[in-house]
């Protein structure tokens, strides 16, 4: 036990005079905490990668495609496996904050709720991006892929698509936190809302892989989807966080 800290009058003045941390500072603090915890445990990333690997192997047994066919179907396979694997990370988003009533502490603190939401969404975005960086080369190998269109577009599609899944996923994880059998609930409410985004990712990826036409429509659709749902999430998150 350490002795209680007694602040001198000058120190009290200094603390109360220091400006409140900005919203962005809170976001980065919470994000770096999550990243540290993940770095130490590697729970989410390991289970996601192994899960995605299993899906890839099972898909390749089930379809056994030629190189030509794989260009047509792999856009679907790759995104479906990322979506399933992302659920693993998304489900763990808030679980950590339930223990020791961290979420309640956050609720009574003056910190803006959206700062917390952004940190969680950015954290999930990073986890899923790492997953994609590891798994994409494996897909290339297993399915004998050669990109026929402009490959740099795949990076843009991956970033926009990942954000589309993760921003709604983080939000719905906060909703499903308050349900029975919450791990089952998340995909049930997330998948229907994600259908157009998934369709856009799959089609854009297919177009780039086959090099047949321009993927512009799908990329714009994804960008607008991201924008709209980021705004909706940020508008409603405070309501959900404070739900009694």
């Amino acid at each position: 036990m350490s002795a209680p800290v007694v602040l001198s009058e000058a120190e009290v003045k200094e603390v109360s005079a220091s400006p409140a941390p900005t919203s962005w500072k809170i976001t980065t603090a919470s994000l770096s905490k999550d990243l540290w915890l993940e770095w130490r445990s590697k729970d989410a990333i390991n289970s996601m990668i192994f899960f995605a690997l299993l899906v890839v192997v099972i898909f390749s047994f089930s379809f056994d495609p030629t190189a030509e066919e794989s260009r047509q179907i792999v856009g679907g396979l790759i995104w479906v496996s990322f979506l399933f694997a992302a659920i693993v990370a998304l489900n763990q988003t808030w679980a950590r904050e339930i223990r020791n009533q961290v979420l309640d502490a956050y609720r009574v603190s003056p910190a803006p709720p959206n700062a917390l939401f952004l940190s969680k969404a950015l954290g999930n975005f990073l986890f899923v991006t790492v997953l994609e960086a590891v798994m994409a080369p494996l897909f290339m190998i297993f399915y004998n892929l050669k990109v026929l269109g402009p490959a740099y577009l795949l990076l843009l599609i991956a970033a926009l698509g990942t954000w589309a899944l993760v921003v709604n996923g983080t939000f719905f994880a906060a909703i499903s936190l308050r349900t029975r059998s919450r791990e089952v609930m998340l995909p049930l409410i997330l998948f229907p809302i994600s259908i157009p985004a998934l369709l856009a990712m799959v089609e854009a990826t297919k177009i780039v892989l086959t090099g047949e036409s321009a993927a512009k429509f799908w990329i714009v659709l994804l960008a607008v989807y991201d924008l709209v749902f980021t705004v909706v999430c940020l508008t409603l998150f405070e309501t959900v966080l404070n739900a009694e």
Binding site: N168, I175, I189, P192, I193, I195, P196, A197, L199, A200, L221, V224, Y225, V228, F229, V232, L236, T239, V240
Partner: peptide, 16 residues
């Protein structure tokens, strides 16, 4: 809240 999300996604479903 979910109903608002459901409504926001309708135009995207239609367009896509």
């Amino acid at each position: 809240v979910l109903a608002v999300f459901g409504f926001a996604v309708v135009p995207f479903v239609y367009l896509s």
